[in-house]
Amino acid sequence: MAKSLYLFALLVVASCALCEGQNVTNLPKGGSISDTMRTVTSHGPERITRNIIQDRNGNIWIAAFDGIFRYDGNSFTNITNQVSSARFFSVLEDRQGNLWFGTIGSGVYQYDPKKADGQKFRHFTTAEGLIDNRVPHIYEDKSGRIWFGTLTGASRFDPGQVVGKQFQNYRMNGAWPFTGLENGDLPPDDHDDVNSIIEDKNGKFWFGTRGDARIFDGKAFTVIRHEGQTFTNVRTIMEDRRGNVWLAGGDGLWRYDGSTFTNFTDDFVGFVYEDRAGNIWTSSQSTFSGKWGISRYDVKSLSDKKPVATKIDSDYKANEQMTFGLMEANDGSIWFGSLGGVYRYDGKTIKDFKGK
Score class of each variant (00 low, 15 high):
residue 186 L to Q: 03
residue 247 L to S: 10
residue 296 R to K: 14
residue 108 V to H: 07
residue 106 S to A: 15
residue 234 V to P: 00
residue 298 D to N: 06
residue 279 N to L: 15
residue 205 F to T: 08
residue 243 G to E: 02
residue 228 G to E: 13
residue 167 F to H: 08
residue 54 Q to N: 11
residue 208 G to F: 09
residue 198 I to K: 06
residue 251 D to K: 01
residue 192 D to I: 00
residue 220 A to T: 15
residue 154 A to E: 09
residue 206 W to C: 07
residue 325 G to T: 06
residue 225 R to S: 07
residue 340 G to K: 09
residue 306 K to D: 09
residue 161 Q to H: 06
residue 345 Y to S: 12
residue 250 G to E: 10
residue 240 D to L: 07
residue 292 W to I: 01
residue 22 Q to H: 04
residue 347 G to M: 12
residue 274 E to R: 10
residue 268 F to T: 04
residue 288 F to G: 04
residue 47 R to A: 10
residue 37 M to S: 07
residue 18 L to D: 11
residue 307 P to E: 01
residue 84 S to P: 06
residue 38 R to C: 14
residue 61 W to Q: 07
residue 260 T to R: 02
residue 12 V to C: 12
residue 168 Q to N: 02
residue 233 N to M: 00
residue 91 V to L: 07
residue 347 G to Q: 10
residue 296 R to W: 03
residue 17 A to K: 05
residue 251 D to S: 11
residue 146 I to W: 03
residue 50 R to E: 11
residue 159 P to D: 08
residue 28 P to N: 10
residue 213 A to I: 11
residue 111 Y to I: 05
residue 211 G to M: 08
residue 149 G to V: 07
residue 10 L to I: 15
residue 165 K to N: 15
residue 203 G to N: 09
residue 174 G to Y: 04
residue 211 G to P: 09
residue 24 V to A: 01
residue 102 G to M: 15
residue 32 S to N: 02
residue 168 Q to S: 05
residue 229 Q to A: 14
residue 183 N to M: 04
residue 330 N to T: 13
residue 264 F to N: 01
residue 299 V to Y: 08
residue 2 A to M: 10
residue 96 Q to E: 11
residue 178 F to S: 12
residue 230 T to M: 02
residue 212 D to V: 14
residue 47 R to V: 08
residue 5 L to F: 10
residue 221 F to E: 13
residue 163 V to A: 08
residue 207 F to M: 14
residue 12 V to M: 12
residue 313 D to G: 01
residue 145 R to F: 08
residue 108 V to G: 09
residue 43 H to D: 06
residue 239 E to F: 06
residue 75 S to N: 11
residue 236 T to E: 09
residue 137 H to S: 06
residue 230 T to I: 07
residue 192 D to Y: 00
residue 55 D to Q: 07
residue 227 E to M: 13
residue 342 V to W: 05
residue 80 T to R: 03
